[in-house]
Write a protein that binds this DNA or RNA. Structure first.
Lengths: 145, 145
DNA sequence: TATTGTTATACTCTATAACTATA
DNA sequence: TATAGTTATAGAGTATAACAATA
């Protein structure tokens, strides 16, 4: 067993996430919550089950998260006109503002960190971003090969 | 406000962490727990307060995490011979084995994901790993420049 | 007095199981 | 029967405040 890229990448991801999380807890918008808001903004209203699948949460977990977001007036539930069982979750104006604010806060934390690196390192990170984005977008359940 | 590297990097990190977390929950070893075990292995026994600082957790939070790890026989507490107030946390043999197992599981998840990328993307990620490692190692409290 | 660690308490986040309503 | 969503319940994880013991 040698040191694979995955083995090197993993602790780094954990550490970065912990740094990000601790920087801006005042907003009260967790990373999953933020991901949901972001998705609602870019894709429009979405179903609970779809959000759960895409964000890799359980359906009850997503119900509860949406409940918290609704109580904070960041989203609202509207009935799905095409399926009486379903619910569409929609971003409110407040949710849109909160999304912008929180995302900017988290981004600023990372940019501050990046600013401590030298130019070569910054360039290496920037060059890897599209690849990392594709890495994160690998569909759920995709095994190795 | 344009799209900074931090703004692009942030959602990717969140998504990757969620992927990693959901891949191998059976171990019961969280990412922070894993980071602590890893540190104990590489640096030897450490103080609660030191672990809390390095892993960016509160001191009570670290006490509780160490308590969970101790209950699972992954670490043990020994008195600090140089300071009656202090405690040294030490990895057990079981903890070392669990660390190897869990780290391998998480790494395999990431490597499987990486294997779905094309060669250029994989190279870009590999090239960025040292920079990302330095990014994650920026000391706590270091503001932007 | 300051530091180290623990206990008490509360909250967020998430999961599984059981349930309701619609398809 | 299958699917969409909710409720009930439990547990991990983490924080702040208050405390005990040692320096």
């Amino acid at each position: 067993m040698d040191v694979t890229p995955g083995a090197q990448l993993m602790p780094v991801l954990g550490q970065l996430i912990r740094i990000i999380r601790q920087t801006d807890p005042s907003d009260g918008v967790s990373l999953v919550a933020l991901a949901v808001l972001r998705r609602l903004e870019s894709e429009g209203p979405g179903r609970i089950s779809e959000l759960a699948r895409v964000e890799r949460a359980s359906q009850p977990g997503m119900t509860q998260l949406v409940g918290r977001l609704e109580r904070a007036d960041l989203v609202r539930r509207i009935p799905d006109p095409h399926d009486g069982r379903g619910v569409l979750v929609e971003l409110t104006d407040g949710g849109r503002e909160q999304l912008a604010r929180t995302a900017a806060g988290y981004a600023a934390t990372l940019d501050a960190l990046l600013s401590r690196l030298d130019a070569d390192d910054r360039a290496a990170v920037a060059a890897a971003i599209p690849a990392l984005r594709r890495l994160a977008a690998v569909p759920a359940g995709a095994g190795g090969g």
